Amino acid sequence: MRKLIGEQVARSGGWLPFDRYMALALYAPGLGYYANASRKFGTMPGSGSDFVTAPEMSPLFGRMLAVQVREALEQTGTHEVWEFGAGSGALAVELLETLGERVRRYTIVELSANLRARQQQALAAFGPRVTWADQLPETIEGVVVGNEVLDAMPVKLLARRNGAWHERGVALRDGRLAWSEVPTHLVPPVVPAGTGDYVTEVHHQAEAFMRTLAERLVAGAAFFIDYGFPEAEYYHPQRSMGTVMCHRGHLADADPLDAPGEKDITAHVNFTGIAVAAQEAGLPTLGYASQGRFLVNCGIGEAMAALPVQDQVAAQRLIADHEMGELFKVIGFQRGAFWDAIGFRTGDRTHTL
């Protein structure tokens, strides 16, 4: 991986933009973090995993999302589910088991051949109802879901120094990867107050993805779950170090240049940018809420009450404000007439976007 990145730096004149570096570190065939054979998902470091996502934490996450997906299928008159970046396949299992024959086909859009193989093993019992694709089709009819997908899309890094904006990229110094900045015309969508040093991200690829999805979703709805903020919070003057983080062995660090290909690299989501990109392409927002509120609206409280205490404790992490309940958000979009979606009936924060 280091050899590949070094070659790309050289081909780019000695400076590689961070979004291209992040794409290589995560997705380079056979070498990138999501393309290699290392285990990613698991509940404990001893398993050799790097992090846990909500579907592995508790099956109630998928079952509650299924409540919203079922309603969306009914409201839009569609019969298919599309999942982007299905990870371990745990979410797909719960959605398929909960929704049953209401879903005629379940398509997973997955770029990683390694993860696709793991998903195929996890979902073998569902037979030909589950299919895979490695790119967006020209048209989509159905309900789209994506859990922790947007945060893994490469971002550009911007740095304000002495009042002037620079783009941060990667160079080689004495054979080692190092930060390097060049002047740029790019600025954040909301320029943080003041002139002090400031590092942040812009999400061109995630927003381009939303525009493409909006153009191709001809009937249905879409729901994305991820960690992030609306624009005003994302570019707050006090958030001066940006949000890029790495995950390895269930530990977090802020150095994406260390051990590329061996750990996850993520950035928080600017949900305002996601909503605006979709809306400008003709896909309006159905709702936006914290994960905790969304799951409570879908009935997780009643479902938890029927579980053993140990399973209740695991499920509680999905909704507790100091765990995943507040940092993670759910944003929904609809093609066609608006309806009062169950997941956003109380606590909808669309007005904050």
Rank of each mutant, 00 (worst) to 15 (best):
G14V: 08
E181M: 11
G77S: 14
A124H: 10
V144K: 13
R102G: 06
A252S: 15
G48Y: 06
S38C: 07
L307T: 03
L16C: 03
A314C: 10
R118D: 06
L213C: 03
E167I: 07
E181K: 09
A214G: 06
L111N: 06
L158W: 02
V149C: 09
P237I: 02
Q119L: 08
A232G: 10
T212I: 11
P55D: 06
A193Q: 06
L283W: 09
P260T: 01
A164M: 10
P137D: 05
S112I: 05
R173M: 13
V199G: 02
D253H: 14
V309L: 12
Y106D: 04
Y27M: 00
L96K: 03
G287M: 07
E80H: 14
A232R: 08
R317N: 12
E138F: 14
I140P: 00
P45Q: 10
Y235F: 11
L73T: 04
L213S: 02
E323K: 04
L150M: 12
Q8M: 10
A164Y: 11
G6L: 04
P137H: 05
R129D: 01
V93S: 04
P128F: 05
S112Y: 01
G287K: 08
A259I: 04
R248N: 10
A315K: 06
R11M: 09
P137L: 10
T76E: 11
A124S: 05
Q75D: 14
V191T: 05
W339M: 09
G261M: 00
L177I: 11
W15F: 13
V144M: 13
F51G: 01
A219P: 15
R70I: 13
L60I: 11
E323L: 11
L172K: 04
L24D: 00
T184I: 03
L172Q: 09
V144C: 14
R11Q: 14
E262K: 08
S290T: 13
T76Y: 12
V130L: 02
A289F: 06
A341L: 13
S58Q: 06
K3G: 09
A314L: 14
D134S: 08
M324K: 02
A208S: 14
A259E: 06
L158T: 01
Q135K: 09
H236F: 02
I274T: 00
I5M: 01
G292R: 02
R129A: 01
Y235Q: 00
T76H: 11
L16N: 01
M241R: 15
V269N: 01
K329C: 07
A214C: 03
G6R: 00
